[in-house]
């Protein structure tokens, strides 16, 4: 039997598609999607799912970071990926052994930098370039050893910073994968982080990926953000409200 013809031989949607990334004007057969559109969607979802499930290659990441400074590796209290996804509370707490590791490196630091897998471990591949571009902009800052964190949520950075004795923390973390952007890094910066810091206390840079913000541009913005935090002695909504954020 001959397959049904697609809806639109002379696709009238091509012009409209330039205005939106939305999946408009999809070919169909009956009410269902044509096979090509069906499989394209499935491929995008598969990429996003794989990005969520991927583990963090800590040793490779540590090797890339090593020329930039000392590197420590920690884990949250979430023992595995499945638990991590369901228990954000565990992802915000340090595993006992990691607490000890960090305590051994306690010092007097201005900034802790945490590289966390979050919801997309692969996104951390952009972190070394960001850090390399950031460090020259932080003259006079005492930066703690870099911390690679597994099964980590943003708030794990608060525990890392307080254990290390750092006055601010920048968490570079894999963002929730989307269908169009499965691998993207976000940065959350917090001044005077403590147990109980909330999203309202943080400033965020998001969408750091190949088609979005570059690691170098993110480093420039993060340096500006950190300088503003140090100058005003605060972060989060209060800093945003003062209108000092660079765009």
């Amino acid at each position: 039997m001959k397959p049904p013809a697609p809806d639109r031989p002379g696709d009238p949607w091509s012009g409209l598609r330039t205005h939106t990334p939305a999946r408009i004007g999809l070919a169909r057969s009956g009410s269902a999607l044509a096979t090509k559109a069906l499989l394209e969607f499935r491929a995008d979802h598969a990429r996003a799912r794989d990005a969520v499930g991927d583990g963090l290659d800590e040793s490779a990441l540590a090797a890339t970071l090593a020329p930039l400074g000392q590197v420590l590796t920690v884990a949250s209290a979430a023992p595995d990926r499945a638990t991590y996804l369901r228990r954000p509370d565990l992802g915000r707490r340090l595993a006992a052994a990691s607490q000890t590791t960090l305590a051994e490196h306690r010092g007097d630091y201005d900034l802790a930098v945490v590289i966390a897998d979050g919801l997309s471990a692969r996104a951390t591949l952009a972190a070394p370039a960001l850090i390399a571009a950031l460090l020259p902009r932080l003259r006079g800052w005492r930066v703690a050893p870099f911390v690679i964190a597994r099964q980590a949520r943003v708030a794990l950075g608060d525990a890392v910073a307080t254990t290390l004795g750092a006055g601010a923390v920048a968490v570079l973390i894999g963002e929730r994968p989307g269908l169009s952007v499965p691998v993207s890094l976000g940065v959350y910066a917090t001044w005077r982080p403590r147990a109980g810091s909330t999203d309202a206390d943080r400033n965020c840079l998001s969408n750091i990926h190949a088609a979005g913000t570059s690691p170098e541009e993110a480093a420039r913005r993060l340096a500006g953000l950190l300088a503003a935090m140090r100058q005003r002695g605060l972060s989060g909504v209060a800093l945003k409200d003062e209108g000092v954020l660079l765009t």
């Binding site: 939106t20 990334p21 939305a22 999946r23 408009i24 999809l26 999607l33 559109a37 969607f41 995008d44 979802h45 929730r176 989307g178 269908l179 169009s180």
Partner: peptide
């Protein structure tokens, strides 16, 4: 469109 919300990032 296509079950893919390109703003909110969910299906």
């Amino acid at each position: 469109p296509g079950a893919d919300d390109v703003m909110l990032g969910y299906q």
